[in-house]
């Protein structure tokens, strides 16, 4: 049953571009981007129990590093993604190491992740070489053809790229969850002191979670940069973006593999539908989408704190 549902889902996603116009395609691309970013964030929070509210930092780093490499040195994103991921992993590891060394835990750790993201936002605002507050722009070319090396081409190409990324990350996370590292992450999440007494090296396991989550998030940032072509520090490093990233996995189900995907499938179209309705009625609707996201989040945390997917799974045969 579960397997069939999975195949149907994969089939739908594979065939979707054939039946969708440009609007639906861009909606689906956004949906998959949030599924991907949520999955990457979920490694750190859902698997290893470390709440980061600064994941925009890694999206922004990935985006800016790859965009700068492409703009100033002509290094295509297919190569630029590696230094981008490395930069994010390095920054994530540094934050992880500092928090471990100085025993910053719980709420304080979360505040630390916010603080670093905000510092990055303010720093990039002042980096005039990278456009500062004015933004950094990638040249927009004719949206046709398929150039995977430079990540230029048809919207359908972008759709399949992010679909492949999301699917690969899903499979990778499934393998990770069943690996020794995955179990050690869960031990860290459940009870660090008990985990340590069973020989789990907390520092190593925590750094692995943060570095991997950061690097994968940065890869998502590279994709997003070349999809939208315009980078602004306030948007790409902002707290609002960090919060948007965590919505899908929380609503879908923290620490589950399907959670981030299900959350994105539910949320993104909901947001679009609400915007469409209010626009259609001619209402002044700035803020309506995040407002509804807030209501959804509230209802989920209050009534289904484990998320929607675990509730569905329980009823599956």
């Amino acid at each position: 049953m579960k397997r069939t549902a999975l195949f149907v889902l994969i089939g739908l996603f594979l065939l979707a571009p054939l039946a969708s116009g440009p609007y639906l395609l861009s909606l689906l691309t956004t949906l998959l981007t949030f599924a991907y970013l949520g999955q990457a964030w979920n490694i750190m929070m859902g698997f290893a129990g470390q709440l980061s509210l600064g994941h925009a930092l890694y999206v922004g780093l990935g985006a800016y590093v790859s965009a700068a490499l492409s703009l100033f040195w002509g290094i295509p994103p297919i190569l630029g993604v590696f230094p981008a991921m490395a930069a994010a992993a390095l920054v994530g590891s540094a934050i992880g190491f500092l928090s471990f060394r100085f025993a910053v835990k719980g709420v304080h750790f979360t505040l630390l992740t916010i603080a670093f993201a905000e510092i990055a936002r303010l720093t990039f605002q002042h980096l005039s070489a990278l456009g500062g507050t004015g933004g950094l722009f990638l040249p927009v070319e004719a949206r046709t053809g398929v150039d995977l090396i430079h990540l230029r081409g048809d919207p359908r190409m972008f759709y399949y790229v992010i679909l492949a990324m999301a699917a690969a990350l899903f499979l990778a996370c499934r393998a990770l969850m069943a690996s020794p590292l995955g179990y050690r992450w869960q031990a860290l999440r459940e009870d660090p002191a008990a985990a340590e007494s069973l020989g789990v090296n907390l520092l190593r396991v925590k750094l692995a979670a943060i570095a991997l989550s950061a690097a994968l998030t940065a890869a998502g940032g590279v994709f997003t940069a070349f999809f939208y072509n315009a980078l602004f520090p306030d948007q790409w490093f902002g707290l609002g973006y960090s919060i948007e990233i965590i919505l899908a996995p929380i609503i879908g189900g923290l620490g589950t593999l399907f959670g981030p995907i299900l959350g994105a499938i539910l949320l993104t179209p909901l947001g679009e539908a609400i915007t469409a309705v209010t626009d259609g009625l001619g209402w002044q609707s700035a803020g309506i989408k995040p407002f509804c996201y807030g209501v959804c989040l509230l209802l989920i945390v209050k009534f289904l704190p484990d998320g929607i997917w675990p509730a569905i799974r329980k009823r599956l045969p």
């Binding site: 709440l51 509210l53 709420v107 979360t110 919060i243 965590i246 929380i250 002044q284 609707s285 700035a286 803020g287 309506i288 989408k289 995040p290 407002f291 996201y293 807030g294 209501v295 989040l297 509230l298 945390v301 209050k302 704190p305």
Partner: peptide, 19 residues
């Protein structure tokens, strides 16, 4: 979980004010 609950309240208030 407390954090996320209050984030949802924050989202509602900020965007409610915007609306």
């Amino acid at each position: 979980m407390q954090f996320i609950l209050l984030i949802s309240v924050a989202l509602i208030l900020t965007n409610g004010a915007l609306l």
